[in-house]
Amino acid sequence: MGFFTSLWQGFHSAIVRTFVTDDRYLIFAKGLQNTLVITLGALIVGIFIGVAVAVLKVYYYQVGPFKLWPSLGSFLRTGRLRYLNQVLLRLMDGFLNCYLTVFRGTPVVVQLMVWAFVVFSSTNEVLVAIIGFGINSGAYVAEIVRAGIMAVDKGQTEAGRSLGLSAWATMRLIVLPQAFKNVLPALSNEFIALLKETSIVGYIAVTDITKAAALVRARTFDAFIPLFFVASVYLIMVTILTYFQKKLETVLQASDRK
């Protein structure tokens, strides 16, 4: 037997052991499914939280900012609701800042374990992972979207308001679409990072595709095939994501043509 023939046979039997024996491909399939479900779920939660936080923060800085104690003092002295409103807005901004600081300032794997073992201790770990990653991602998306909103010319808001649109309608119809276009590359970055970050859900006993590889590796004592397979799967998923990002960018750039 030649050298290459024996190399091929070794390779072939490793593939068989990794994927075929005991129907191990099913572990990978289940893992891939979990990876996709968690990523997609966290993406939706993250966008929802991120846009809401960004809009609220921008709103606060448009009408404010306010100082807590002077506003509270004015409210207690005059009893006017305007000052109470200022106090509440200031507290809201403080709360949002805490959220951003805590969730961007601690490792996502620690957050995930806190959700799974301290807060929920639920048996639905996939749902816990969606919540954990979603809330974490929301903090990053919030700052990205806020940057995008602030990059839209103030005249756009003024034009919308001067025509009689409400503040929220102006935000939704005029500002956010332009902000979204500004930050699409940064958002894609965040989503790619999120997809790959989900590879740590093994810590809370979810079998994602990375965990699947580890499980199979422990059975077959072969690390090469499962790890390179999993790496390729991530690479392919990221490539697909990037493809759609480019497509979307092209569509959004239709209005830029001169």
Binding site: G155, Q156, E158, G160, S255, D256
Partner: peptide
Amino acid sequence: FQHFNLFPHK
């Protein structure tokens, strides 16, 4: 407005 402020995405 001085700078028109048309909505560029529309």
